[in-house]
């Protein structure tokens, strides 16, 4: 893995902060950090995704801090956090100011809905790529159970994770013993 410069980290996360319309930020981050720049392995990235969802706070805020910290320590965390959050912070308030002078035209609203639909597609890509890396029935079952409990049944995250993570840990431990 290559270690990025702080300037490179800033430029990537600044761009992500400006362009990530309509959610799906996890997908955009994965594209840049794992695929395009290979700063992190897929395993490190997806572990970070799970870790950041379990911790309180915005998932993608936590994720960008995690990546900055793992890659460049505390200065990296400050760089990715400020880079990804400062631009949309300014943009969202400017949008609020513009809106207080009257709602935007309909075409703008629908164009943003189109961007949001693309964003969900990018997010799905990140899931699809990760599914391909799961080997064996056990991990696939864990992924399916997690999706069903939280996505479909809308069960609360904390108890679901408290059951699913230990089960997955046991599986992972058994697999590592078998390989050894």
């Amino acid at each position: 893995m290559r270690q990025p410069s702080l300037a490179a980290l800033f430029s990537v996360f600044f761009r992500l902060g400006c362009t990530s319309f309509g959610g799906g930020l996890t997908g955009w981050i994965q594209r840049e950090v794992v695929e395009k720049h290979a700063w992190m392995t897929a395993e490190e990235f997806y572990a970070g995704v799970a870790l950041c969802q379990v911790l309180p706070g915005g998932n993608n805020v936590n994720l960008c801090l995690y990546i900055g910290l793992q890659l460049r320590g505390t200065p990296g965390l400050i760089t990715t956090g400020f880079g990804m959050l400062a631009p949309p912070f300014v943009i969202i308030v400017l949008m609020g100011i513009a809106y207080s002078h009257g709602a935007g035209p309909v075409w703008l609203t629908t164009a943003l809905a189109g961007l949001a639909a693309c964003g969900v597609g990018i997010m799905l890509e990140t899931g699809v790529k990760a599914v391909r890396r799961l080997s064996g029935a056990g991990p696939i079952l864990v992924a399916a159970a997690t999706f069903a409990a939280i996505g479909v049944l809308h069960w609360p995250l904390v108890p679901v994770v408290a059951v699913v993570v230990p089960a997955s840990l046991a599986l992972s431990w058994v697999q590592s013993r078998r390989r050894a």
Partner: peptide, 26 residues
Amino acid sequence: TIVQNALMPVAVGLIFAGALSLIEAS
């Protein structure tokens, strides 16, 4: 490494759940 491999499938489930909730919210 064991913890990372264990978190991977959980992350997959959470990503799909997140995508579904974005679709529902919009």
